[in-house]
Nucleic acid binder design. Structure first.
Length: 365
DNA sequence: CTCCCGGTTC
DNA sequence: GAACCGGGAG
């Protein structure tokens, strides 16, 4: 029997994929829009998390024109909890571009796709190969790991050298027929068999062709680069209620952390600042209000991509009546029902859930 | 071109 | 603690 070589890889993978492919909602369609939405959601986010969001999003925005017509607030609400909210903003903006400039048809070219906000090399390659059957690489984290192992690439993953080499190999490997299935096969293999921690080499259709396996170094590829622990910050959030029982919310700027989502008044504490003092300062700076903080209700831990935070939640009263902001105001009094309609991050949902559980009663931390 | 920012889940 | 891509600043 002839030794396995590089040119056997597509056939072996495609055969394996036909028997082992995962049944995923976006694999039951060839609609470029639906595949695009799925690929954007799958950026930075696991398959199981994406599935329910994907279903709901497409029910709400079934085609490009529906998404293009929607308000950003509605799109963000559908994205609530999925994280990396700039993806939603970019997708919405891109849908408007497709509706306006491409007659509602998702572009089927690399240049057309890459010109859309939120579409990088990976997403464009995935859409081109999966929805349009074109020969394009789609190198995500799984594919990177599979190729790094297959070719025993020991340079640190994410480094310029390894990225370039892996991209080049991915381009070469793609077969002219079924490029979309080939790319998805690579991703499934990485997700199910060639996993980061302990790859299941005996189950791998490419084991005999795998360079890392041959050298017995599959467990240490890709090499892990030590990362510094995330910094920790302290923050305060104010629970301000008016006489109608509504709560004051502030809208975050469209860009930056959690852009376009609503939050409680407050923010990061300065070094050595107490929650009460910080809250007084922030109410003054942010809303021009003179406020009196009450006793801390609870403290919530939350992690972001590059720091962790402890949020102290304090009730407060503000002097004098505060009018409701208009439709586009950056702050607004929100009743119980409205609180389920506005888009907020996990952190605010966590706080709202905790307050609801103990009925908003004061409680020692 | 490289580095840093950006959220959540398992 | 690990995993997961794109944009924008430097």
């Amino acid at each position: 029997m002839r030794k396995l070589s590089e040119k056997d890889i597509p056939r072996l993978l495609l055969d394996w994929y036909k028997k082992n492919r995962r049944d995923l909602p976006w694999r039951r369609t060839s609609d470029p829009y639906r595949i695009w939405v799925a690929e954007v959601m799958l950026q930075q986010t696991r398959v199981d998390t994406v599935i329910p969001y994907y279903e709901r999003f497409l029910e709400r925005f079934p085609d490009v024109n529906a998404l293009a017509r929607a308000r950003l607030d509605a799109v963000l609400k559908s994205w609530e909890g999925l994280g990396y909210y700039s993806r939603a903003r970019h997708l919405h903006e891109a849908a408007r571009i497709v509706a306006r400039r491409h007659g509602g048809e998702v572009p089927g070219s690399m240049d057309g796709l890459r010109a859309l906000p939120g579409v990088g090399a990976y997403t464009a390659g995935a859409i081109l190969s999966i929805a349009f059957g074109k020969r394009a690489a789609a190198v995500d984290g799984n594919v990177t790991r599979v190729i790094a192992r297959l070719f025993a690439i020991e340079d640190p993953a994410g480094g310029g050298k390894a990225t370039k080499r892996i991209g080049g190999i991915a381009e070469q490997l793609i077969p002219a027929s079924e490029p979309g299935h080939f790319n998805q096969a690579l991703m499934d293999l990485g997700s199910v068999i060639c996993t980061p921690g302990s790859p299941d080499c005996p189950a791998c259709p490419l084991a005999a062709a795998c360079g890392a396996r041959g050298k017995g170094i599959q467990g240490s590829i890709p090499s892990k680069n030590a990362q510094a622990p995330l910094p920790h910050r302290e923050a305060v959030a104010a629970l301000l209620r008016n006489d109608r029982g509504e709560t004051l919310f502030v809208k975050r700027p469209d860009r930056g952390l959690l852009g376009g989502l609503w939050r409680f008044p407050g923010g990061l504490l300065e070094e050595g600042e107490t929650p009460a003092a910080g809250l007084r300062r922030m109410l003054r700076e942010e809303l021009g209000l003179k406020g009196t903080p009450g006793k801390e209700l609870l403290a919530v831990e939350h992690g972001y991509s590059h720091f962790r935070v402890t949020v102290h939640v304090l009730p407060g009263s503000v002097r004098g009546p505060v009018a409701n902001g208009g439709a586009d105001a950056r702050w607004r009094w929100v009743g119980a029902e409205g609180q389920s309609r506005i888009a907020v991050s996990r952190l605010e949902r966590k706080i709202l859930g905790a307050l609801k559980r103990d009925g908003g009663r004061e409680k020692p931390v």
